[in-house]
Nucleic acid binder design. Sequence first.
DNA 1: GCCAACGTTGGC
DNA 2: GCCAACGTTGGC
Length: 154
Amino acid sequence: MAYWLMKTEPDVCSFDDIWKSPKRTTGWDGVRNYQARNFMRDEMQLGDEVFVYHSNAEPPGIAGIAEVASAAYPDPTQFDASHDHYDAGSTRDDPRWVQVDIKAVRKIPRFVSLDELRANPKLKAMRLLQRGNRLSITPVTPAEWRAILAMAGA
DNA sequence: GCCAACGTTGGC
DNA sequence: GCCAACGTTGGC
């Protein structure tokens, strides 16, 4: 059982949007970074727990708890020429990009803002908080997971 | 809207 | 294989 943090822009897909989706589940498409793809393809397991993080938001922060609800499979948007995430260099025989399904499992009593995360000394080493980090999927350690749950009142 | 940080691309 | 140019991310 591993823990992850996945970023989403709430204007595009918020935690509540996932919550309201059929089966509270959505395909996490659009990842176009090799490191993030490799996490999904090589390391994520069904049932891994996920913090859903709102980026480009006011304020940014952790909005809810989800879980990995599928194995990695090809992201269909890479094949769609009319789509923003189209990748002309990828083929159906050898897809470059994958996604997983993410299921919202629990609302949290309190939103945990980026400022609060930064202010918690227990999270000093958290990947999300490192200088210049832009990775949209990052691992979360069990200790970090517990600390953030406490901050969220969960 | 600005811009620092980082990833990718492509000429050489 | 180097590295400058360019594009993107995402906080502010």
